[in-house]
Design a binder for these strands. Structure first.
Length: 382
DNA sequence: CCCAGACCTCTAGA
DNA sequence: ATCTAGAGGTCTG
């Protein structure tokens, strides 16, 4: 039997359901029969199969499967970092956002946090996100691992793989293969990005190379370097900065956030500020070429309004906005996903307590390859 | 610099 | 069942 280890949480600071399914991470699998999530994750230079669940709002529990038994305290530390548990979400809401922003006074964070994900994996995942929906992005990320990563083990009929490195994508994948796997026009971007990465990173591992940018470059320079990869525009670059580089003040502006800016914040263009930006970016050729100045001003407005953790505030509004458009109740924010699992739809009562009110069953394929229905049932139905 | 279109597929909803 | 709009954008002309 799986032995779980407990990580205590300040009540309400983290909702595993909301964080893992809001469209920030794409490689967690929900097992409805056991009410837990599983994925693979790299701790240092070693990949592990990880299982997590949240019995209540005071803790999460984890278990590491397969391979050598890693040090539990070591894994716990990595997970505390992955979930950024040192960041006091509720305090930020009360003392930073709600006091400066009247639109935030009525908001609840619902345990939606920003993650500290692997930068390379985040980069490739968000390249897949362009003009795409969450369920397909999820499928593509799993497919990438199953086809080009390394197999780590198998549990409950699910095969687990590492996320492929730039070398592995360059050597094992091709635009043609990726297209046949359903990546569409993103196939060329992924191959181009992998090739450029192999070239740029020299002897460093992918993520270590990307993280090293933070040592000597500004945000604007880092974004410019991300945008030098094919398939990476300002929105994808900002997402990688925020969710993969721990750059908490970055606000990625997508269609939803742009709508919020106009609808709820009455955002209007300022011509002189655009000119300032054009000057500021004049020595950043890639940014100057790819950036949309109106969207970039929205990013800056939110950063000034929300402060050092502006990206976290964006995450909360985004999760709520997408929850609305995906047919969930305005109270909850769990959206339907393409997982053959049961997604719990949560609502919050006036005390901010979570209640499960509704469940629905949907479909999922782990490898991205067509799977037999009977096999899927065997794997997930209890 | 700004503005359209095009771009691959697939999923959700009608 | 079928069918169609639209999906956390980016690139090109």
């Amino acid at each position: 039997m799986i032995k779980f280890h407990r990580i205590p949480i300040t009540p309400g600071e983290l909702s595993l359901d909301n964080v893992l399914q809001c469209g920030q991470a794409f490689r967690w699998i929900y097992h409805k029969d056991k009410s837990h999530y599983s994925t693979t994750m790299r701790f240092g230079n070693q990949y592990h199969i990880l299982v997590m669940k949240q019995p209540d709002n005071t803790c999460v529990e984890f278990s590491v499967m397969g391979t050598a038994n890693p040090d539990t305290a070591h894994v716990a530390d990595h997970l505390k970092n992955y979930f950024r548990l040192e960041v006091p979400l509720d305090k930020l809401l009360r003392t930073e956002w709600a006091v400066r922003d009247s639109n935030f006074k009525m908001k609840l964070h619902r345990g939606v946090r920003l993650l500290s994900q692997d930068p390379w994996e985040t980069l490739i995942s968000y390249i897949c996100s362009s003009n795409n929906n969450i369920s397909r992005i999820t499928k593509m990320c799993h497919s990438l691992c199953a086809q080009f990563g390394n197999k780590l083990g198998e549990h409950d009929g699910v095969e687990y793989y590492s996320f492929p490195t730039s070398d592995e994508i360059k050597e094992r994948a091709s635009e043609e293969k990726l297209r046949s796997l359903g990546f569409g026009y993103r196939a060329k971007f992924i191959m181009g990005t992998a090739r450029k990465m192999v070239e740029d990173r020299r002897n460093l591992p992918d993520s270590q190379y990307l993280e090293s940018w933070k040592d000597h470059l500004t945000y604007e320079q880092i974004r410019d370097k991300f945008m030098a990869f094919p398939g990476v525009g300002p929105k994808v670059a900002d997402c990688v900065c925020l969710s993969g580089m721990q750059m908490d003040d970055v606000v990625p502006v997508d269609v939803h956030i742009a709508r919020i800016a106009q609808r709820d914040y009455k955002f209007t263009l300022n011509k002189s500020k655009i000119e300032e930006l054009q000057i500021q970016y004049s020595d950043l050729p890639v940014t100057r070429k790819k950036v949309n100045y109106e969207l970039d001003l929205i990013r800056i407005m939110f950063k000034e309004k929300w402060g050092d953790f502006a990206g976290w505030a964006q995450g909360i509004l985004f999760a709520q906005e997408v929850g609305k458009t995906s047919g969930a109740t305005s109270e909850g924010m769990i959206k339907k996903r393409s997982l053959e699992v049961e997604i719990k739809v949560e609502v919050t009562d006036t005390l901010g307590q979570y209640q499960t009110v509704e469940e629905e069953s949907i479909e999922y394929s782990v490898t991205g390859r067509p799977k037999r229905k009977s096999a899927k049932r065997d794997s997930y139905e209890s």
